[in-house]
Design a binder for these strands. Structure first.
Lengths: 154, 154
DNA sequence: CCGTATCCATTCCGATACTG
DNA sequence: CAGTATCGGAATGGATACGG
């Protein structure tokens, strides 16, 4: 399957993976959420080569997940900031973090989790709630064309 | 950065991406959630070459996300079923689907979303809730070592 | 400090052919 | 049907050197 023929993909999961399914992308978003803005900050944090960081940042800007602005320190360079679309990825990051916390880490391993910034306490487990308010178990979730309203609230 | 040196990674997001960050993996989980179990079913659904599918299925079994069982139709082959660990990925899939629904699809494009199986209505937007019950905006979420309880509820 | 431009190694993936 | 074996091309990533 081609990584580039997904603009017509109908599955919302596949579609999102086409945009952010790359290894670095969500880590950049995570760092941006943590307040990193400068090229060098991302590079140090990620340990990625500069050329691939450049590519990823460009792609994220092209997708509207990051936006550039003149650097606030007066230097001639850019800052990279999350857009609303980028911030909307937070539930994805939280879901990933919670999953590995419960199912991947060994009990005594140190870990960095999604936490509430104010209290530094872990976020409550994300709950999947149906349109009528029922909490759904995993088996009750399907991927399908919805009955009526595609857009609006997801 | 190496895809294989992440067993000691402390960031929960990175850790999960190391396990499921590959393009095919979450699509297989999505299909398994939809009820697909047989090799050929996955192959037709994904359009992936058989050798690739073999590799991915093996990796998922090794990670404990899928498990094999003798085929229920009496044939000599295997079935692949989600484990509890695999079903726990549903919030990740829902988060991805909701994000692309709101931020990637064009308004009039058809789409397949996470829906409640009973009603075929979209799932409510996932909410990020702090330990004390406050709903958190994206900016209020950080990734950090938690104050005290790492395991247990995420 | 912020990128860009090359180069090279590796990985990945699709197609195909083959086996039980 | 359910895989395994092999091959070649493409994309990716890392290292490094270079330029504004």
């Amino acid at each position: 399957m081609k990584r580039s023929s997904m603009e017509n993909e109908v599955c919302a999961v596949a579609r999102s993976l086409d945009v952010i399914g790359d290894w670095w992308t969500l880590l950049i978003v995570r760092d941006a959420l943590a307040g990193l803005r400068r090229f060098g900050e991302f590079q140090r944090s990620l340990g990625a080569a500069k050329n691939i960081l450049t590519t990823r940042l460009r792609a994220l800007v092209a997708q509207g997940i990051l936006e550039t602005a003149p650097a606030s320190d007066g230097s001639a360079y850019q800052e990279y900031r999350l857009t609303a679309k980028g911030r909307a990825l937070v539930p994805v990051l939280v879901a990933l973090g919670q999953w590995s916390n419960e199912h991947v880490f060994l009990p005594e391993q140190e870990r960095i989790l999604p936490v509430d910034r104010a209290q530094r306490l872990p976020i409550q487990p994300l709950q999947v709630v149906a349109a009528d308010g029922r909490r759904l178990a995993p088996e009750e979730v399907h991927f399908d064309a919805p009955q009526r309203p595609p857009a609006g609230l997801s």
